[in-house]
Design a protein around this nucleic acid. Sequence first.
DNA 1: CACGATTATATGTCTAGACATATAAGTCAA
DNA 2: TTGACTTATATGTCTAGACATATAATCGTG
Lengths: 242, 242
Amino acid sequence: MSLATDAADQPTLYKRIRADIEKRILTGEWPPGHRIPFEHELVARYGCSRMTVNKALSELAQADLIERRRRAGSFVRRPQHQSAVLKIADIRAEITALGRAYGYELIHRKLRTATAADRERLGVKKAGKVVAIACRHSADDVPFAVEDRLIDLSSVPDAATADFSRDPPGSWLLHHVPWTEAEHTISAIVADNRTAEVLDIAVGAPCLVIDRYTWRSARTITAVRLLYPGDSHRLVARFKGG
Amino acid sequence: MSLATDAADQPTLYKRIRADIEKRILTGEWPPGHRIPFEHELVARYGCSRMTVNKALSELAQADLIERRRRAGSFVRRPQHQSAVLKIADIRAEITALGRAYGYELIHRKLRTATAADRERLGVKKAGKVVAIACRHSADDVPFAVEDRLIDLSSVPDAATADFSRDPPGSWLLHHVPWTEAEHTISAIVADNRTAEVLDIAVGAPCLVIDRYTWRSARTITAVRLLYPGDSHRLVARFKGG
DNA sequence: CACGATTATATGTCTAGACATATAAGTCAA
DNA sequence: TTGACTTATATGTCTAGACATATAATCGTG
């Protein structure tokens, strides 16, 4: 989780304690390595029980803002070496959040027995049925991204009969497969002929690529490749904490 | 924060409770929208006090796995629309973690009064001194990324006299400026002549671009652009939770 | 001085209560 | 039927204790 920045106006005591300490860390008043007051000192300062300050400090520790060491105390952590939280939003949500009209177009949808390439891509050994989908997302009728997806039907049988002509498969999957794990890989390529045509850009123009591989309880569900025009689209990642 | 996946083997009770519930959610046994047992039911099941189950549930709520509603109960959340956590590691750490030899080379370093373009890039109004740095990171003597950085000296005066000929400015800043906030923007471009030469790739080859803008307490510190050869380098983001 | 044993202490977890508060659900009147 | 009021209840916060446990610091000893 991430801490709310403005927990200070919360009326509860532990949130105030947490916000007070967070502020001193973020302003640099308590630099990395600084030992923050012991629990019993904070108990005295705020006139509350130890469980209350413990809750505040535990949350700061969960947020990696401080490190707690038995017998030694609690210390401000060194920033985590430029790590960041990137929100890769659902494409439809992303476009509508920008206040633009979302458009969706199914390019093709094929049900087939998994080829060797399909099995490789999904990371499965046994040959089963898969659905291969290509589609295009657009914002205000301008091509926004092209999607190339493979769904493992042995994991998601319902996908065989799902209608992807109106709703994008990503949204459908979100509502039919709960709580997945995934790995994203981000890279850059230049547009080939087919990509250039679908995205309405020049051949050789840069494209941002997101490969997402999704599974649940060690079971593969779907593999998807998203291509964005690289000079117009941008992924934004905002973060707090070094 | 994110929950440790293997909290089950922890000997403490609240971690066991948390892990039990987490497991049922992740396997799909308790799908999104499912109401998990009330606190008093879990108290009965585990034979402990309410504070103990409350701690377990609070952490699950902090991790966005469940949603807690007064009077109604606690409910499994719908996955957060394909958001992901991306770790953009410190380049030196990233390369050494790959077991490759880290190399660094300063291309140029200039101290100057901020130009209009510099002020625009740093998002500051007043003209002050800045340090402009270009450098190259390599792995096993192969160019890995080229860095183009601007540091605001009114925020980080020490940077004026820092020696960037041996250590990269990113590492230096990590140790001299605690607890920053930042925004990353990821995009794709094709290599121009100069970039191609520095990265030893072909002109027109795809490059991944990370623009990072860093500040502390509303004060600009540094703006940096990193260029990676797009077909060889990849950013990997792993996440749990839909 | 080096190294092992002891001790002190800050955090980690837990209890059995308490009152506060938001709100779902039920009740009643227009 | 609808809207306003009341009530029941699950969570939110907090207390004043307790014992467990890891470990920094101290003390002794060879």
